[in-house]
Computed example of a mutant assay.
Amino acid sequence: MRKLKDILNDKDINLPIPEQKKLLRKILLLEREKLFKQSTDVNWGAKQFFRALELLKIPEKQLKEQLATKRLFLACYFPIKFELDIARFAEEYWLFPAVREGKELLWFNYGDGKENYYTNKYGILEKKEEHCFEYNNSMPPMLCFIPGLAASREGYRLGYGGGYYDRFLNMNRNQITAVFCLPSEKFLFDDLPNESTDEKVDLIVW
Rank of each mutant, 00 (worst) to 15 (best):
I146S: 03
R51A: 14
E92C: 00
K22G: 11
N116C: 00
K81F: 09
N137L: 15
E185C: 04
A151Y: 01
S184P: 01
L105G: 06
Q20M: 12
P147M: 01
N120V: 04
G162N: 05
I86R: 00
L182R: 07
F189T: 04
N172M: 13
D41K: 12
G161K: 10
R51S: 11
Y164A: 12
G113H: 01
E134K: 15
K57P: 03
D12V: 11
R153Y: 11
L67A: 05
I27C: 10
T197K: 13
C76S: 15
Q20H: 12
K121I: 09
T69D: 10
I146D: 00
D12F: 09
L15E: 09
L56K: 06
E31Q: 09
L67I: 01
F108P: 00
F96M: 10
Q62S: 10
N174K: 15
Y122H: 14
F36M: 07
L106A: 14
F168Q: 07
N170A: 15
I86S: 12
I86A: 06
N116E: 05
I17Y: 09
I17R: 12
L149H: 00
N172V: 12
Y160N: 07
S196G: 07
R157G: 03
G155L: 07
R100H: 14
E129W: 00
G111A: 02
L35S: 05
I7T: 07
E65Q: 11
K64Y: 13
P18I: 14
G163V: 13
A87D: 12
L125M: 11
P140R: 05
S152K: 03
Y77P: 06
E19H: 08
P140Q: 08
I27L: 05
G111T: 01
D41E: 14
Y156H: 07
R157Q: 04
F187W: 03
P16K: 11
